Computed example of a mutant assay.
Amino acid sequence: MKVLIVEDEPGFAATLVLGLRAEGFVVVHSTNGVDGLWEATENHYDVIVLDIMLPGLNGYEVLREMRAKEVWTPVLMLTAKDGDYDQTDAFDLGADDYLSKPTAFIVLLARLRALVRRGAPQRPVVLTAGTLSLDPARRVVQRESTTIELTPREYGVLEFLMRHKDSVVTKNEMLQQVWDAHYAGPDNVVEVYVGYVRRKIDTPFGTNTIQTIRGAGYRLDSGEYASGS
Rank of each mutant, 00 (worst) to 15 (best):
M1W: 05
V6N: 01
F12Q: 11
L16I: 01
V17N: 07
G19V: 01
G19C: 01
A22V: 05
E23Y: 01
E23W: 07
G24V: 03
G24W: 00
V26A: 13
V26I: 12
V27A: 06
N32V: 03
V34P: 12
V34E: 15
L37N: 15
W38E: 15
W38F: 14
W38H: 14
H44G: 12
D46P: 05
D51Y: 12
M53A: 12
M53E: 11
N58I: 03
N58Q: 11
G59A: 12
G59K: 04
Y60H: 11
Y60C: 06
V62C: 09
R64K: 14
R67C: 08
A68R: 13
V71E: 13
P74M: 10
V75N: 11
L78W: 01
L78C: 05
D82T: 08
D82Y: 07
D84Y: 10
D84S: 15
Y85P: 10
Y85S: 15
D86W: 02
Q87T: 10
D89L: 08
A90D: 08
A90N: 07
D92H: 09
L93E: 11
G94M: 08
D97T: 07
S100L: 01
S100C: 04
S100K: 02
P102M: 00
I106P: 12
L109A: 06
R111Q: 04
L112S: 10
R113A: 03
V116M: 02
R118I: 03
P124V: 03
P124D: 06
V126G: 09
T128L: 09
A129W: 03
G130L: 01
D135T: 01
D135N: 06
R138H: 07
R139D: 05
R139E: 06
V141C: 08
E144N: 15
S145R: 13
I148D: 09
E149M: 14
T151M: 04
P152W: 07
E154P: 00
E159M: 09
F160N: 03
M162Q: 07
M162G: 04
R163P: 04
R163Y: 10
R163M: 09
H164W: 11
V169K: 05
V169M: 04
T170I: 02
T170F: 01
K171D: 10
N172I: 08
E173P: 02
L175V: 10
Q176K: 11
Q177N: 14
Q177M: 14
Q177A: 15
W179D: 12
W179G: 07
D180E: 13
A181T: 14
A181R: 15
H182C: 04
Y183C: 09
D187N: 12
D187P: 02
V189G: 14
V192I: 15
Y196T: 09
K200H: 12
T207L: 05
T209D: 13
I213V: 05
R214G: 00
A216R: 08
Y218K: 03
Y218E: 06
Y218I: 03
R219Y: 05
S222P: 05
G223Y: 07
Y225L: 14
G228R: 00
S229F: 11
